[in-house]
Amino acid sequence: MSAADVTTPSRRDGVPRPRRALPSTRLLRSELRLIGGRRRNQAGLAVLAVVPVIMAVAVKLSDPTPAGDGPDFFSSITANGLFVPLAALSVEIAMFLPLAMSMLAGDSIAGEANIGTLRYLLTVPVHRTRLLAVKYFSLCLGAIWGVCAVAIPGAVVGVALFGTGPMVTLSGDQIGFASALWRVVLVMLYLSAGLAALGAVGLFISTLTEQPIAAAIALMIFTIVSWIADSVPQLGWLHPWLVVDHWLAFGDLLRNPMAWGNVVQGLLVDGGYAAVFCLAAWARFSAKDITS
């Protein structure tokens, strides 16, 4: 990982550079190769992708489910294949996708510290802040990756088994396939933003410890405690501040016309979490003594 070319050359020679070079993506590419190359991450993606396939095949093989039973959107799957990714996302957003984020976040700093590669990474003449930014950016890409791993196989299997009929929105209207596909993409982006905000919390936790398992479990505990707090009505004042509270607002994108209030609120909360916890991770990481 010789990254001498990553730094901007010194300007002591007094010759002004005509144009600032684009920031090198070498560090990011190396990070993404690391994330994508890990066997456990590939296995995790496969598990995420299996759930919608199981749902779709089970619905196809069995009798039509009575309406109102099973997970949300379950009974709508037979009408439109695009409900497969939506049903799978609504099932996996509670536990599986945060678990995937926990794995990635645990590996990002604590994992490197644990196997002793973090200090080598820091010998590269790259500022710690930049390293952290690259780590967080790749976590955000990981969030999109995870959501795609659920939604794309789900959409492919769903369309293959149940076709591309008009989609029934929650308001009871029907919309065409292209419009429905667009809404699924919006839902995917919205959920990715929520997971990316969770990733910022994970990044901060990851700078606190050298044990990736501990960091992953801590983020999972954070998620579960948030869900529990979100379901206790006596903590109503806290709910708007919980990162998980607005995740299920993705349903608002499936109404006709779309209701943006809760979605925008959710994105603001996501942005707040990302900003605060990235800054906390920076405060911790850039002053930290790297001992391993």
Binding site: G68, L170, S171, G172, G251, A259
Partner: peptide
């Protein structure tokens, strides 16, 4: 339209016709 977390109940009135729709039980 009563907005639920992943559902909706609508009461639509158009002249003499009134529809009550529930997305949860379809």
């Amino acid at each position: 339209a009563l907005i639920g977390s992943l559902g909706e109940s609508d009461v639509v009135r158009n002249g003499k016709d009134v529809w009550v729709w529930s997305s949860k039980d379809k």
